[in-house]
Write a protein that binds this DNA or RNA. Sequence first.
DNA 1: CCGGCCGTTCCTGTATACAATCTGAACTCA
DNA 2: TGAGTTCAGATTGTATACAGGAACGGCCGG
Lengths: 251, 251
Amino acid sequence: MSERGGDRSLSQTVRAQLALRDMILAGRLRAGERISELQAVDITGVSRTPVRMALVRLEDEGLLQAIPSGGFMVKAFSERDILDSIELRGTMEGLAARLAAERGASARQLEPLKECLADIDELVQQDPLSVEAFSAYVALNARFHAQLDELCGSAPVIRQIERVAALPFASPSAFVMAQSALPEAHQILMIAQDHHRIVIDAIENREGGRAEAVMREHARLAVRNLRLALRSRSHLELLPALALITQAADK
Amino acid sequence: MSERGGDRSLSQTVRAQLALRDMILAGRLRAGERISELQAVDITGVSRTPVRMALVRLEDEGLLQAIPSGGFMVKAFSERDILDSIELRGTMEGLAARLAAERGASARQLEPLKECLADIDELVQQDPLSVEAFSAYVALNARFHAQLDELCGSAPVIRQIERVAALPFASPSAFVMAQSALPEAHQILMIAQDHHRIVIDAIENREGGRAEAVMREHARLAVRNLRLALRSRSHLELLPALALITQAADK
DNA sequence: CCGGCCGTTCCTGTATACAATCTGAACTCA
DNA sequence: TGAGTTCAGATTGTATACAGGAACGGCCGG
């Protein structure tokens, strides 16, 4: 237990990146706060070179912001930034779905999607969903979205979707865990699953407009989840990403 | 003339980044080719640390691709990647225009846009457009798009648009210069300007759907430009970005 | 008492040395 | 002859030393 960063098979750069990201998401580095390289060295236990690399990577991941005079600070997000990021993801996933529909997807390509669909179906059948069920849903949901995005067959589109979804509050499953204690949870999950089913149907029938529209609306479920969670103030500790929100983001 | 990289006021990292990007865009580093740090040091004349930084930045700019075992290679793009990137930009600019329309833009905000519109009007009035006029158009067009994107008031949206437009073949003015010798040039420019006018009108009247649709179609003009230029095979030297296209992009 | 100037201190940007890993080729053995 | 192995070269990942510059505090002058 002499090394601090955990698994020694990872490169120092990746280790530093993970450690710093965890710190930021945990809210231990507050938004707007300048994060010096030396400080990051102390946190991560690696030397300045990989720390520097990790900071650059976190910057274009969107969690850090470069300071003109040099160095980085933790980026501040407004609530609106979050909503816009979700809308942005929905728009791009809508594009991906439309392209998939217009260009056609073979039965072979659709098969894993349908399997995923069935798995989720089975999951949401249980009426009182356990926390473990929510966890499983998050994983399956992520897989479904990834496979769906792949269907468009366009590397640039996939790349951009991944970039947006890398933000902790814009990923398809960002606020799923937050609803695990809400009464509306089960209903929302079933609606989400209906969207999943519809988009596959639309792609199968080459209905590009329908596929696009449903994916856009699908993303907006995340907004509903977020609003519900914020309103009921329940289990906010399940949303570490909210530490990044500032009431008045300077921008 | 002792220094190689040019302006000494820029940081070594930026200098290396510019030099390497120029080399790539000029096609002097072919797509798929591995680019070693030492080689980059030779090219740029700076030491390995800033070179490494520049390589990382060029990777998330999208021009380079990380090799699993370490290092980077010049990214290869298919013709379809280019078309998809343009569609992607159109989709996101459409989102920005829709948001601007839905959220409303004040007369004060719209004023610079209208000025830009008038400037372009004046430019496209000349019937045989000079090469200088095309250059001026590129600048004005870039300004118009930047201001339009800003109108949505959403930092995440603007950020993503900029990331896509950073690709040399996806920017709003990527293929304008290529048409400077085409007979259809003047007509296309006038159509583009009509799109500009329509989107402003739509935003002014809070017609979100119309604003979005016209921006999507507007981006597709770039596809037409590209196709025309490729078909006529004229002035391909005006399109340095095409050096990145490979017939069969390995992906 | 307040504002501007100067020095100190910390921080980032850059260069380079070292270590570990990967690549490639030649050589040997079945 | 072909495949496996081992060794050499090169290349990347990491650490650290050094230099330039910016932020901060104290001091002096008004």
